[in-house]
Amino acid sequence: MRPLLEVKDVSRFFGGLAAVMDVSFSVYPGEIVGLIGPNGAGKTTLFNVINGFYKPSKGDIYFKEKKISGLKPHQICKLGIARTFQVVKPLQRMSVMDNVLASAFLRVKSKTEARERAEEILRFTGLYDDRDKLSKGLPLGKRKRLEIARALATGPELLLLDESFAGLNPTELNESIEIIKKIRDSGITILIIEHHMKVIMSISDRIVVLNYGEKIAEGTPQEIANNPVVVEAYLGEAVDA
């Protein structure tokens, strides 16, 4: 099968610091791929490179076999990659509805169509009852979900989720997991950064592990959980249970 997203030997330097170093991996259609690693491992930087906010210092990124590194974020979004932000960026003084509506205009030109699409997505993500609220008034859990709703409204084939579960309470967590699974079932491929191990282990098909900007492991959740290098990166040393 051909990969949907191919990250090839990508490095990104900030001055002398290598935030991402020679990372390569592929994401195949229909998968949920987890991207994990300790704080500062370069996960968000890698998202910013894929999404076009940063150009890779070295290496290339291919989406559906087309080179996308060097394109602007809005062009990459148009091609079918949408993302959410770890530090949520709701369009604060716009209602929840308008947030999603502004994104929905990417694929449809008429306002009626965009509104229908936005309503459908708000129902899907469980935000329909909050549609008229200003997005700055939403609690964190819903703002995280609004990020997802907005990204979905752009009609992506690949969704990049940056810690969409951080700071959620257990109920919200379960709701969000259900939403992620539903998104996958609707045919959208997902690349997800997450610190919540239980979540990432249960929803990912494969996991890529970064540490100090380098890829240290890749495999199924089972393999990753038993990988001594990964355990060491997280805990400092291997422990016998």
Binding site: N51, F53, H74, K89, P90, L91, A102, T154
Partner: peptide, 10 residues
């Protein structure tokens, strides 16, 4: 409201 968010929304 947010230029980066807008850009990432296409």
């Amino acid at each position: 409201e947010d230029q980066d968010a807008a850009e990432s929304l296409g």
